[in-house]
Amino acid sequence: MQLTQSSVGRKIIMAVTGIVLVAFVCVHLLGNTSIFVGADAINAYAQKLHSLGPLVWVFRLVMLAAFVIHIFFGIQLTIENKAATPEANVQVKRQKTGFAAETMVISGLVLLAFVIYHLLHFTVRVTNPEIYVPMGDQGMVDVYYMVVMGFQAVLPVAVYVVAMGFLFLHVSHGFQSFFQTLGLSNDKSLPITMNISKLIAVVLLLGYISIPVLIVAGLVKI
């Protein structure tokens, strides 16, 4: 009750689910960058994941739960926070917070939309049926081929790049927020975690956009 209804309790839920998502995004990036090693590498990675069987589904359910809970409370808290300030002053000058922190709900919703598109693009395989080529007899597809073919057009690349921009914003505020929210920061550590937060966000941004950008630029090809 306390946890899901109180101000601090929900903030803790946001932090914990948020950090789970950040962890996923980091691991996901690590796996994806194997594309730069070659077709065999990323297909082997996909094969390995596939072989985990039901564990994949457990993992997916956990991620889905974290994702849904994070979104639900994020929206709920934002509505409450907006209601707490019914009318702003004519002049408002912020001194410390920034664009990223002030637009968390927007970047969050953009990421939600992106994730749906991303799943349709590569997981549920709805948007571009032409990029899937079966591989082996386990019902798998050639992931390398799928990814490279998926980023041949400029539009999907642009969508990914823009979305990663929002990911950058979201993580740059969210990561350090986790430490503050769990009480793991103090006056000395906070500036450091804030910098680490930005660093991680930059790494994620560059890491993730490098894949579609290098592909569309023709540097990674079939």
């Binding site: 101000s7 601090v8 929900r10 903030k11 808290l77 409450e80 926070n81 209601a83 707490a84 300030t85 912020r94 001194q95 410390k96 917070t97 922190a101 002030e102 968390m104 505020h173 350090q176 927020s177 503050q180 929210t181």
Partner: peptide, 8 residues
């Protein structure tokens, strides 16, 4: 409202 770590 709720704190979302703006530090303002």
């Amino acid at each position: 409202g709720n704190c979302t770590n703006h530090y303002e």
